[in-house]
Amino acid sequence: ITIHVNGVTYHFDNPEEAEKFAQKMAKTYQLKMEIHNGEFHME
């Protein structure tokens, strides 16, 4: 699972971890999250 946050790329093997991380980042930084081709993009 690949997550892009403001141009920084994070890779996770565990989908649950990826989702937790994505939600935490979105909440902490008030980010808008989109999913493209199974990759999370946040800005």
Rank of each mutant, 00 (worst) to 15 (best):
I1T: 05
I1R: 07
T2V: 09
T2Y: 13
T2G: 03
I3A: 02
I3N: 00
I3S: 00
I3M: 03
H4E: 03
H4Q: 04
V5R: 01
V5F: 11
V5Q: 01
V5T: 02
N6A: 12
N6Q: 11
G7F: 14
G7I: 15
G7Y: 11
G7N: 08
G7H: 09
V8K: 13
V8M: 10
V8T: 09
T9R: 13
T9Y: 05
Y10V: 02
Y10D: 00
Y10N: 00
H11G: 02
H11C: 15
H11W: 11
H11T: 08
F12M: 01
F12A: 00
D13P: 10
D13H: 11
N14G: 06
N14I: 11
N14K: 08
N14S: 08
N14W: 08
P15R: 12
P15A: 09
P15Y: 12
E16Y: 10
E16F: 11
E16C: 15
E16A: 09
E17G: 03
E17N: 06
E17R: 08
E19I: 13
E19N: 12
E19F: 14
K20R: 10
K20W: 07
K20D: 07
F21K: 00
F21Q: 00
A22L: 05
A22E: 01
A22K: 05
A22W: 06
A22G: 01
A22Q: 03
A22C: 15
A22H: 02
Q23P: 00
Q23I: 12
Q23T: 11
Q23V: 11
Q23Y: 12
Q23S: 08
Q23G: 02
Q23K: 08
Q23M: 12
K24F: 15
K24W: 15
K24E: 13
K24M: 13
M25T: 01
M25I: 06
A26Y: 13
K27S: 07
K27I: 12
K27V: 11
K27G: 03
K27N: 06
T28W: 15
T28K: 14
T28A: 11
T28N: 11
Y29H: 13
Y29Q: 08
Y29S: 08
Y29D: 14
Y29C: 15
Y29P: 14
Y29A: 08
Y29W: 04
Q30E: 11
Q30R: 04
Q30G: 13
Q30N: 10
Q30H: 13
L31M: 07
L31P: 09
L31V: 12
L31I: 09
L31R: 01
K32D: 12
K32H: 13
K32T: 14
K32C: 15
K32V: 14
M33S: 02
M33D: 02
M33C: 15
M33G: 02
E34R: 11
E34P: 01
E34Y: 15
E34T: 14
I35S: 04
I35E: 05
I35A: 03
I35V: 07
I35P: 02
I35N: 03
I35K: 03
H36F: 10
H36W: 11
H36M: 06
H36T: 06
H36G: 02
H36I: 14
N37P: 02
N37K: 04
N37S: 05
G38V: 02
G38K: 04
G38N: 05
G38M: 04
E39V: 08
E39G: 04
E39P: 04
E39F: 05
F40C: 15
F40A: 04
F40R: 02
H41E: 03
H41Q: 03
H41V: 09
H41A: 02
H41K: 04
M42Y: 07
M42P: 04
E43A: 11
E43V: 15
E43N: 10
E43K: 13
